[in-house]
Computed example of a mutant assay.
Amino acid sequence: MSADSTLLLQHDQSFFDALVTGDADLLRELLSDDFLLVSVEDGAVAGKDLLVGLVASGSLRFPAIDSFPEESIVRFVGDVGIVVGRTGMNFTGADGTEFSAGSRYTHVYAADSPGVWRLVSAQGTTITAPKEG
């Protein structure tokens, strides 16, 4: 794995860590100003300000996010880094609803400068058990 891939996976883990610890300042640092999140739960779209605000207020909590960086696929296209990975997560929404899911995700990063990556876009898809026929 290249040094760039390792660095991008570290940034990816920092994003998950910031969600779990509720670190709004770290989220502000990690996310691009035009960041968009497509929810794994329902496909809703949220921007940076909404996500950071919900996490900062405690309305959106992530008690646990397990990531599996050894399974991640990291690709680069110019100044863009793409991580496709897998998580197991638990979160509690603003209405108190608890949600757990195994998911595959795609995170798109843009380089501000060498070694400085900002998460531009994140989308998760719930992994469902295969249906038996």
Rank of each mutant, 00 (worst) to 15 (best):
M1A: 14
S5F: 00
S5N: 10
L7N: 13
Q10N: 10
H11T: 05
H11C: 09
D12T: 10
F16D: 06
A18S: 04
L19P: 00
T21L: 15
T21F: 05
A24V: 08
L27Q: 07
R28A: 14
L31Q: 10
L31Y: 13
D33Y: 06
D33C: 12
F35G: 13
L36N: 08
L37W: 08
V40A: 09
V40D: 07
E41V: 05
E41G: 06
D42G: 10
A46S: 13
K48D: 06
L51N: 12
L51P: 05
V52E: 05
G53D: 09
L54A: 14
L54E: 15
S57C: 06
S57M: 06
G58M: 03
S59E: 13
S59T: 11
L60E: 03
L60C: 10
R61Y: 09
R61K: 11
A64M: 03
I65Q: 06
S67V: 11
S67F: 08
S67D: 02
E70R: 03
E70N: 09
E70M: 11
E71W: 02
V74L: 02
R75C: 06
R75K: 07
D79M: 01
V80R: 02
G81W: 01
I82C: 07
V84D: 04
G85L: 02
R86H: 14
R86V: 15
T87C: 10
G88Y: 07
F91W: 08
F91E: 05
F91L: 14
T92S: 08
T92M: 14
T92C: 10
T92K: 02
D95S: 09
D95Q: 09
D95L: 01
E98C: 10
F99N: 04
R104V: 15
R104L: 15
T106E: 01
H107F: 02
H107C: 04
V108S: 13
V108G: 15
Y109L: 00
A110W: 00
P114V: 07
V116R: 08
V116W: 14
W117C: 00
V120S: 09
G124S: 00
T128P: 01
T128H: 04
A129N: 05
P130N: 11
K131A: 15
K131S: 08
K131Y: 12
K131N: 10
G133S: 14
G133Y: 11
